[in-house]
């Protein structure tokens, strides 16, 4: 009997997070970890973390959801229309969430019932809905968020809500059969099917959850931006996927998908963005280039450690 090996790849997200934090603390001469900036950082991360909480269900299946960003924008503008029509913030929130879940369900149906590859299905939704969002915004002028929504920008309300959302999704993902089914589908869909797991239903639910969190994050985003905008949610889906993969989830999903990885990944992405901003590279060519470079390094190391683990295990155990 061999001792169970301590697994290095479980550590990679922690290590990347700490290294990034240290590097930027040094480069920004300490202003990175000033209390003000830390609270800024958390504030900026909220939206991303929420979206990651739902999308991880999709990533666990080895699939992608490219419609997260556009879903965020679409739920926002439809919610906005509902608010204008009724004047009720509650109706706005409910509408936005329903729209988000609805888009997720459409994604899930396309993928599970009609066997469209997830990349193509969600890409089509991304392009199509972006057109509708732009159209609505071209006829309805930019609106400002209601007072009730603006309350969400207050940290004392925002953070408890964030924690609540994370706890609920963490529980669903790590401690219920739904999370297990999603991971099993990523491991080997044929196995999940042969055993008798509800494969189709799990796919639909995963996309619905991804849509739900996209809609929740859109409400927080409105609160932060003070209203909807035309560029809302662009590239957001990429950021969500980057966070999940940088956190150490492999593209194949399966048992490598863990909630903690998604959340750490979200922080890593935000630290890089925030650090470069403090250094004065905000929205410049340099910033994007450096972001890309850093992400590539982290992704390389993640995959490298995972593959090495596989290799060690495989060769050690092949005939044992």
């Amino acid at each position: 009997m061999k001792k169970e090996r301590f697994e290095l790849n479980k550590l990679t997200p922690f290590v990347s997070l700490i290294v990034m934090l240290l590097v930027f603390t040094v480069l920004t001469k300490g202003s990175m970890i000033s209390p003000y900036n830390i609270s800024m950082l958390i504030d900026q991360s909220v939206v991303l973390i929420i979206a990651c909480c739902g999308t991880i269900f999709v990533s666990a299946q080895g699939r992608v959801d490219l419609s997260v960003g556009v879903n965020c924008a679409f739920s926002a503008v439809i919610g906005d229309l509902a608010y204008r029509a009724t004047g009720s913030s509650l109706i706005m929130i409910v509408t936005a969430l329903l729209v988000g879940v609805g888009i997720g369900l459409v994604n899930g149906m396309l993928i599970s019932r009609f066997k469209v590859p997830s990349f193509m299905a969600t890409l089509a939704i991304l392009i199509g809905l972006r057109g509708i969002v732009n159209y609505i915004q071209s006829i309805a002028s930019v609106n400002y968020a209601s007072d009730v929504i603006m309350m969400l920008s207050d940290n004392q309300i925002k953070l408890p809500l964030l924690i609540l959302i994370v706890v609920v999704f963490w529980y669903l993902f790590e401690y219920t059969s739904l999370g297990r089914y999603c991971k099993a589908i990523g491991e080997n869909e044929v196995v999940a099917y042969s055993v008798g797991m509800p494969v189709g239903r799990s796919k639909i639910v995963a996309y619905a959850l991804s849509g739900l969190t996209a809609a929740i994050s859109c409400i927080f985003l409105i609160a932060r931006l003070g209203g909807t905008s035309t560029t809302m949610g662009t590239f957001f889906e990429m950021k969500v996927m980057t966070a999940i993969y940088v956190g150490g989830v492999l593209v194949r999903g399966g048992s490598t998908a863990k909630m903690y990885k998604a959340i750490l990944g979200a922080f890593i992405v935000m630290i890089i963005e925030n650090g470069l901003k403090i250094m004065g590279y905000a929205s410049s060519e340099v910033s994007e280039f450096v972001q890309g470079l850093l992400l590539m390094v982290i992704l390389f190391l993640t995959v490298f450690f995972e593959l090495r683990r596989q290799k060690v295990k495989k060769t050690a155990g092949q005939e044992a």
């Binding site: 219920t176 059969s177 297990r180 089914y181 991971k183 099993a184 491991e187 080997n188 044929v190 196995v191 042969s194 055993v195 008798g196 797991m197 399966g254 048992s255 596989q310």
Partner: peptide, 24 residues
């Protein structure tokens, strides 16, 4: 290997897989 077991997953995850509903 192709239809029954998740080869890249752990023994525990494979072992409890068919019992997921009853272990809830």
């Amino acid at each position: 290997d192709g239809e029954a077991l998740m080869m890249q997953d752990s023994i525990v995850n494979n072992f409890v897989f068919p019992s997921t509903t009853s272990l809830k």
